[in-house]
């Protein structure tokens, strides 16, 4: 795996193929947990963590269990169960090992199971045909891209609290339009080539 190729995977994961703003996955937490900067950061890091572990485990299970046994059609069921089990395990382990981190993430952890960014990335890695190193790099950069989108949105929405917004646009509608403008900026970088 050459370094430039890995770099392009990173850039595409974080910016040009941003999971939220370009691929439109994981929008529920993006809108729900982006009201403040700190909660956005917490959610972003929790998702990154689950994303990396789940796509790695899904990758290993897919190529070493499902493919040899010819059970590829069970992909969706197996992947979602792995993600649900992992999130539950992470919940238990974090509660025991690092209560402070658990308390700051606690609320968001359970939500990650139904975050389609996690299942989407696990599926994408298989359909792109990545090898194991690229899978990990891809998952890390997708997670960082998610965190970046959440942080930018959190910052904007903190400021929007004090600005005057038309009555019927308050809350979600204006947040969606803001996200649309951010998405234009991100897809404008799509011309980056290496």
């Amino acid at each position: 795996m050459s370094l430039t190729l890995l770099l392009s995977v990173v850039i595409s994961g974080v910016i040009t193929n941003n999971i939220v703003l370009v691929q439109s996955l994981g929008i529920c937490p993006f809108l729900g947990v982006s009201k403040k900067l700190d909660s956005g950061l917490g959610m972003g890091l929790a998702v990154t963590f689950v994303l990396v572990i789940s796509s790695l485990v899904c990758y290993i299970l897919y190529y070493f269990v499902l493919v040899p046994l010819d059970y590829v059609y069970l992909q969706t069921i197996v992947f979602i169960l792995i993600i649900a089990v992992l999130v539950q395990l992470l919940d238990i382990v974090l509660k025991k090992v690092s209560p402070s981190l658990y308390n700051s993430l606690g609320v968001y952890l359970a939500l990650i199971t139904t975050n389609c960014a996690v299942l989407g990335t696990a599926n994408n890695v298989i359909s792109y045909g990545y090898d194991i190193l690229t899978t990990v790099v891809h998952a890390v950069s997708v997670g960082l891209g998610f965190t970046l989108a959440l942080l930018i949105m959190g910052g904007i929405r903190e400021r929007m609290e004090i600005s005057r917004i038309p009555k019927f646009f308050k809350g979600l509608p204006i947040a969606l339009i803001t996200a649309g403008i951010m998405a234009m900026a991100f897809s404008g970088l799509g011309g980056l080539t290496f």
Partner: peptide
């Protein structure tokens, strides 16, 4: 054509939601 990209999706969704609110 921007309205067929993700950006347009966000914007149309936001405007329609404001309309529904109204």
């Amino acid at each position: 054509t921007i309205f067929q990209a993700t950006a347009g999706g966000f914007i149309v969704f936001g405007l329609l939601m404001a309309l529904f609110n109204y």
